[in-house]
Write a protein that binds this DNA or RNA. Structure first.
Length: 186
DNA sequence: GGTAGGATGGGCT
DNA sequence: GCCCATCCTACCC
């Protein structure tokens, strides 16, 4: 399976909302597995209390304040890992949670990693599911996603995309902020 | 079709 | 000690 060029750092060096919308339709690639990004959420700096960066720089959140184009991976509910891509210039907080993929390569490998998935579209249809399907772990925290093995590429055939905007999922603070983005009728 | 409850551990008060 | 940017199973329509 062949895709377009790897997204450069300048792509990520912008407001998190722009990066979250721009990532839709791009391809997340890890080794033989890949999926089209179909759902994202923006987590902002400043007064976004839902963001892990809201309480400042800690061991966990340092990467969110660092240079753009890196992975922020954290453990949630003691069992699952979630992948974010860091946005905004170096020194400013902001990242994008990758919430769902449409699998396009390495489906057989993903099935072995996700035995609970009944259908192909369930292999990576959630933030914890996609990290399992693509074998992304906390070992990737801080990894540069502008150079492999974990990268984001342009699609082989770029297409026009219709974006739907909704509030973010599964949070209590700033629950009404419209920062979740999906490809409508993918 | 739908949802209630449990698993499970790190981060922070 | 409490709070999670979740997922799966069991059970109930």
């Amino acid at each position: 399976m062949t895709f377009g060029p790897i997204l450069k750092r300048a792509f990520y060096n912008r407001p998190a909302i722009e990066v979250a919308r721009g990532l839709l339709g791009k391809v997340l690639v890890h080794g033989p597995t890949a999926g089209i990004i179909v759902e994202t959420e923006a987590y902002l700096g400043g007064d976004d209390l839902a963001s892990h960066s809201a309480r400042g720089v800690t061991d966990r959140t340092r990467v969110i304040f660092g240079p753009p184009g890196h992975a922020y991976v954290y453990l949630i509910y003691g069992m699952y890992e979630c992948l974010n891509l860091v946005a905004e210039p170096d020194g400013q907080a902001g990242c994008v949670l990758i919430r769902a993929l449409k699998p396009v390569a390495g489906l057989d490998i993903m099935r072995r990693r996700r035995p609970a998935a009944r259908k192909p579209e369930d292999l990576a249809s959630g933030p914890g599911k996609l990290t399992l399907a693509l074998a992304i772990t906390r070992a990737h925290n801080g990894a540069d996603v502008t150079r492999g093995p974990l990268v984001v590429r342009a699609p082989a055939e770029p297409r026009a995309i219709d974006i739907e905007t909704t509030p973010r999922i599964g949070i209590s603070k700033c629950a009404d902020w419209p920062l979740r983005f999906l490809i409508r009728r993918p």
